[in-house]
Nucleic acid binder design. Sequence first.
DNA 1: CGGCCTATTGGGAGCGCTCCCAGTCCCACG
DNA 2: CGTGGGACTGGGAGCGCTCCCAATAGGCCG
Lengths: 359, 359
Amino acid sequence: MAIPAERSPRGPGAEGEGAPLHLHRHAARPTIEDVAQFAGVSRGTVSRVLNGGHHVRPAVVANVNFAIETLGYSVNQAARNLAAGRTGSVAFVVSEHQEHIFEDPNYVLFVSVFGKELRRRGRHLLLTAAEDTEEEIFIGNYLSAGHVDGALLALPHADEPLLARLAQSRLPLVVIGRPLGYEDELSWVAIDDDTSAYEMVSYLVGRGRKRIGTVTGPLNTSGGRDRFEGYKRAVGPTFRASFVAEGDWSLESGRVGAKQILARHHNIDALFAASDLMALGALAALREAGRRVPHDVAVAGFDDSVAASLADPPLTTVRHPCEEIALEALRVLDDLMEGRSAGPEHVVLPTEFVRRRSA
Amino acid sequence: MAIPAERSPRGPGAEGEGAPLHLHRHAARPTIEDVAQFAGVSRGTVSRVLNGGHHVRPAVVANVNFAIETLGYSVNQAARNLAAGRTGSVAFVVSEHQEHIFEDPNYVLFVSVFGKELRRRGRHLLLTAAEDTEEEIFIGNYLSAGHVDGALLALPHADEPLLARLAQSRLPLVVIGRPLGYEDELSWVAIDDDTSAYEMVSYLVGRGRKRIGTVTGPLNTSGGRDRFEGYKRAVGPTFRASFVAEGDWSLESGRVGAKQILARHHNIDALFAASDLMALGALAALREAGRRVPHDVAVAGFDDSVAASLADPPLTTVRHPCEEIALEALRVLDDLMEGRSAGPEHVVLPTEFVRRRSA
DNA sequence: CGGCCTATTGGGAGCGCTCCCAGTCCCACG
DNA sequence: CGTGGGACTGGGAGCGCTCCCAATAGGCCG
């Protein structure tokens, strides 16, 4: 019942000879019209209920919902998107080489949260990794061509041509992390890297550590730069460049960086790595050099990724609220897409000091 | 030009008073009609060109393509999907806990390949992780409700209720890896785990190793089981259960497993881990136990993931052709979705022995 | 040279929604 | 009791495609 026989076949042809085959494809998913008929209201009313139920009597809302439940109706996104003039998808753009992406648990977490949340809103997540400049151009074109309603960007490097391109398109955009050079024009969600790093290094100082080295993130990213600034502020006048090595967030770069510093100052008593992964690398380097952690050298990481608690010893680190960042970015993007926000929005989320055994 | 003034506004209202505002949204993306007009053909012809150009004169095809290029036209997926009666998306379902997923580079590679390839075909990738039974039910309903055109499954465990549920839905489905218990009814793409493992362990035997331990994958997965079978076949009558520890693919389980075997047989001279990650863990355990690799103990992994070449020493392993598997799975799924295949299709892809320094 | 067949082409119908204009109904107010 | 106005509803129009039927244009055979 409620799947009326008059659901007309595709073309005008082939009437009366028994139901045309293509009518049965997929057991005829019910449409909004079926629901309307079942509930004894009009298509318009069902649509209203589907979209928040405003201006519909509560009793009618209940009726319609009952019909929806009974018929097992679920909205056809394609039709909705076409009618509403949107695409129904949001892109998540990362510009990194694949090896790095897979290494970084944060990305995976972002993807997971974005995917789940967007599905709840009847939207899709489009994953795009810009591995080289050519890809970036393709992506830029693709995004500007109107295939997506908005985009979430995680572009660590400051010199992104993609960013410049997208900044002037009208596409709703939210950047994860502070976009160097576009802080004012674009919306972004980030943490206070500087202060977080400052607090961590101050903690090391407070524990009596005197010779504190650091493996920084890439200094052309806001995260890398700001965490380094925090470190400098905390060590104060004792700062010396020979205590610093620049890494690229990766485990390997942490190992190499720690080795360099160790070669220059065999007596360092603490090491602040700007990411957990690099801290893991540093841990390996220290082990190889025969240093005990935290007894000889205290090690601090950043991110509080899964790796941090699995490390040996578990890492003292700064919790980077990835999930909250993801949700907040989504909220800002929603506002942008629905035209609810006046201008670029900037959100800074708090971090949290996590003390474990490495420092 | 070519954006004709007669593109009618939404409703019948507000004519003649200058163009209604909403006409300008997004700079009016050109439609198939605009292209048709520009090329001097009909909508139908443009559509034909868009879909392969069959039954259209080459000269006309060229014309239409020129128009498309000139106007910067790109198809509106929502409209296409609605008209074609499909959803335009494909789900990739993984059932694993998040920590494991992020640990496994294979998944990330799959996601990347699927995403890129599907985008090329104008489809979306829907990522869904079934973290618990409740989630599985939700996903099962969601998929069966007709929100996707097909699904790719990576469900390592044999006892998947989700699998049972989906197996009887009419949804086109391709499983990555051999689905224990559903080998015949479902399509799948896999490698020959048994033979690959057999060859690897035979290699160890051929190098004169006599006491070969193994850390297996979960024995309720086809991969774990089959690699173990290959190991048993290769060691032959010298097989003893005390040389075996069951792992769960994770690094940590590799370490634990190796330690167990080491405790029982302090004189093992080779170790076959059913995954690179577990081999990495085993490497750590051996290092802690003061064994040199490969001098004292040869170590072999499986997968040839990025981790394998970064390990110290680099791992001798079996290359698992992830990318090829992904592409093949997509092809099979395409066939299924387009109704081109008669029944379930089964593909077994070749692996490759990769010799590095660990064995 | 006429008729038949096939390769092309045009364009009507419709996919399942959202939007929005016109009512319709009902209640408070004067 | 008449009227204005707000809360609800119904349903036409249209989103931009694909499908498919009918129509046209050649090409080939007898």
